[in-house]
Write a protein that binds this DNA or RNA. Structure first.
Lengths: 328, 328
DNA sequence: GTGAAAGCGCTAACAT
DNA sequence: ATGTTAGCGCTTTCAC
């Protein structure tokens, strides 16, 4: 910067004004500074700027694993929305979902060069008294029940499973089995509860829950169990990957879908419509979640307020070919 | 920091030493400082530290879209490897693959708070004279032909397609059709070239290439075309998603896989083994690519050297159930 | 419209 | 083992 100032024959102050696009610089001076910047190859040093202004123009994202369809889509939307607002994204990965690892990530948060944080950790960790977000740091949480203490953006996890279950009941199935997400996942828990409530409303006792881990493989394992039973005609899987695994198990023994077996998934991934048969599922709007998230967070950052409360993003039932009337 | 120093009755220098875990501090003093930090609620200011040291402890990642299986797996590995080395990841998304957008991202690079950059942009953009990485900034590029000017980590894109094509020829198929990735993708181009060369080596004239865009939908479209022709018995698809779309098109008209039609994909996603039928494909080791990438980059950062040259990560042919002998 | 001075919070270098 | 000094590159404040 000093070089630029010397070359342009102005003070470093004026250079700063030009760099920030302030108006009170004469056009001729501005030109001179700009060209000096060019020849010197000047770029503002973000550390110095951040030190002075206290703003980093960056948003931190805490997440366990990127390798889940939903997280990735959400992150994509977050990155896009942030970029539009001139913020970059700092990834703060938490390798292990252990208590210590999460606490560590939260503690390191304060020394991170970020103006605010989005937390995508599908677990009840924020309920723990020993894990707290540093005070004064704007935060938005995705898929959490912490709406009473933080700003939360959440997908509606109740309506979708209800629609899925009801859709199957309407087709004449006597009951609907459920392959759930892992213990400890808040989303998984709510999908299970909604499925159970829907059956209860229909006066049906819920069959035992089969607990998976979101993976295709765990879906397949449960599918192998389910295919042995003639009385299982309909399943609601807590995500599309497990649904895919279940369908594979059915195909292996020649059980036709949907003639002898119906299944509904959850997520609606890019591929779900091309599974065989194309999967009936609940579409989540991950992009919308990410967008709203950043909108909220930027507002918090600008106003330095804490926007407590939950924003709900709805889902949609997408009926394809994996569901049909109960077999005769 | 000054507060901590005052409270602990030491100089700010000693506080700095404690904060950085240096050894030359008496245990009693360290304790005192540590407790003072606790009561004050002290956290080091990364901007000030960066300003002084010139190191940001952050690695930039430039990428087009997160929503591709490979990119996301690579990013996951990059994030994990970086975290282990104490670096965070700054995402620098390029929303549009236009020339201007890329140039813009590269220019902004210099004012970004990063010590080095990983570029995951599957296109020949780096060949353009007008797009250059700021000099002095350590860079590693993934899947590129720029190995003569930059450090590159690349998946072997030749062997896999050759194995895939040869696998199909060995099964007795007279020729192998190819559904390719989009024009402009370096990976797609190399897969196509390798497929063509393998056919040529077998004395077979290559059928016309069907150009897709990596999406399931584009695979489906080409599948609809291919299923009309009785002479098409084997296809090599440039990724698993397009393979899935092609299989769907075949299922729709009742063409049995692999009895009347064989297909090989590329990538080996989490789901590919659960497609129906389970997909024969070429496995890419995205995690390894990401890991090597960071290893190289950190070395560049530490030594401030430019490690020109390409590191190749091999692939594997995974034979499942989507390929079989040519129909009689 | 422009410049001079001060200081953000930290650490490298040197002194004790 | 600890303290003192200086300065990283920028912006804010105030003077002109």
């Amino acid at each position: 910067m000093a070089d630029v100032a010397r070359l342009a024959g102005v003070s470093s102050q004026t250079v700063s004004r030009v760099a920030n696009g302030l108006s009170n610089v004469e056009t001729a001076t501005r030109e001179r500074v700009l060209s000096a910047m060019g020849t010197v190859g000047y770029f503002p040093n973000s550390a110095a700027r951040a030190l002075k202004t206290g703003r980093f123009k960056s948003i931190g994202v805490i997440m366990f694993t990127l390798s889940s369809f939903g997280n990735m889509r959400t992150l994509d939307a977050i990155a896009t929305a942030s970029a539009q607002a001139g913020y970059s994204i700092t990834l703060i990965p938490v390798t292990l979902p252990t208590q210590g690892a999460v606490a560590g990530a939260f503690n390191r948060l304060s020394e991170q060069a970020v103006d605010g944080v989005v937390i995508i950790i599908e677990a009840h960790v924020l309920d723990r008294a020993d894990i707290t977000v540093p005070p004064g740091l704007p935060v938005v949480i995705i898929d959490s029940d912490a709406g009473s203490r933080y700003a939360v953006v959440d997908t509606d996890q109740a309506t979708g499973p209800r629609e899925a279950t009801q859709h199957l009941l309407d087709l004449g199935h006597r009951t609907v089995w459920h392959v759930a997400g892992p213990d400890g996942s808040y989303s998984a828990w709510r999908r299970t509860e909604s499925w159970r409530a829907t059956l209860a409303d229909a006066g049906i006792e819920a069959p035992p829950v089969l607990v998976g881990d979101w993976s295709t493989e765990s879906g397949y394992q449960h599918g192998v169990t389910l295919r042995e039973r003639d009385d299982v005609t309909a399943v609601f899987a807590a995500n599309d990957q497990m649904a895919l695994g279940i369908m594979r198990a059915m195909h292996e023994v020649g059980r036709d879908i949907p003639a002898s077996f119906s299944i509904v998934g959850f997520d609606d991934t890019e591929e779900s419509g091309s599974f065989w048969p194309p999967l009936t599922t609940i579409r989540q709007h991950f992009g919308e979640v990410g967008r709203l998230c950043i909108e909220k967070l930027l507002h918090e950052i600008d106003t330095m307020t804490n926007e407590i409360g939950t924003t709900i993003v709805p889902t949609e039932l997408i009926v394809r070919k994996s569901t049909g009337p109960v077999p005769a």
